[in-house]
Design a protein around this nucleic acid. Sequence first.
DNA 1: CAATAAGTGGGGATTAGTGGGAAAAAAGGA
DNA 2: TCCTTTTTTCCCACTAATCCCCACTTATTG
Lengths: 149, 149
Amino acid sequence: MLTGEFKYSLDEKGRLNIPQRVRQSITGNIMIITRGIDKCIWLFPPGEWSSISKNLIDSSSMFLEKTRLIQRRILAPAQEIEMDKSGRISIPQTLREYAGLKKDCIILGMLKYVEIWDEEMYAGYWDENETKFQDAAEKLGDKITFKAE
Amino acid sequence: MLTGEFKYSLDEKGRLNIPQRVRQSITGNIMIITRGIDKCIWLFPPGEWSSISKNLIDSSSMFLEKTRLIQRRILAPAQEIEMDKSGRISIPQTLREYAGLKKDCIILGMLKYVEIWDEEMYAGYWDENETKFQDAAEKLGDKITFKAE
DNA sequence: CAATAAGTGGGGATTAGTGGGAAAAAAGGA
DNA sequence: TCCTTTTTTCCCACTAATCCCCACTTATTG
């Protein structure tokens, strides 16, 4: 899956175009859509999803609280969706509400999956988290450097 | 059983539609309905229910308190219900009260079973548990990663 | 600037979901 | 017991959502 940050709009019928650059790295026209962590939607190619969901299911009994939390939040909202011939998806209503999608959306290619944000929510996310990001970056400082050549 | 998160309303006659996506993964039109853990209702396909209920009964003696708790809470309230021709169910009154169902309901496909929540109660559940979920997710961080290639 | 690729909009058919009337069954009362 | 009243079930009709397809517009490339 490629990376990239794109801006597209939901049309009148609630369809969202997936950029060609992202689509070309997916085989077939099926994706798995689910709630992300933070107020965004996650889109997985079927293969990636099955390995993730298998990990989530493996350690699961409905009688454990932790299992129910994970299942309800990540696993349950997952649905297979199809991209139409021109590469658009329809986002299920509950997910649209969760992510607060109105019209303008930001689509993020995350190598193995895709995130969909409402544009304003995404701006809000960075307003709140820029500092945390700076800290996280600081901690990477020791590990990640350009090697002298 | 498929996953998916859906929003439907109880109608005037107290009927609730089960989404086509969920129905199509069930053979026949019979389901077992019972109290769930947390303020929701559980719906099982007959096959799943018989293995769960057998587990609950087998590993238990009525002389143990813990058994009686589980039996009264999960096993006893269970009833068979039928879906009508357009795929709706009528939810028994005691269960409706337990889950606080008013009008708008959230239906969660949980792979092996289905959960039914009152919409507001479900929102409340996440208000209370979002932090617990974030912790649980954070702990999964070690286990669930994309393998370097 | 022409040719091709990518993205957008919308009409019409089909399916899913909703509401409600009428028949059947159950409950209640004299 | 028999009649009335209420509840449940069954079915049909209407509405809304989804899907499928095609055509138009915009962007990209040589």
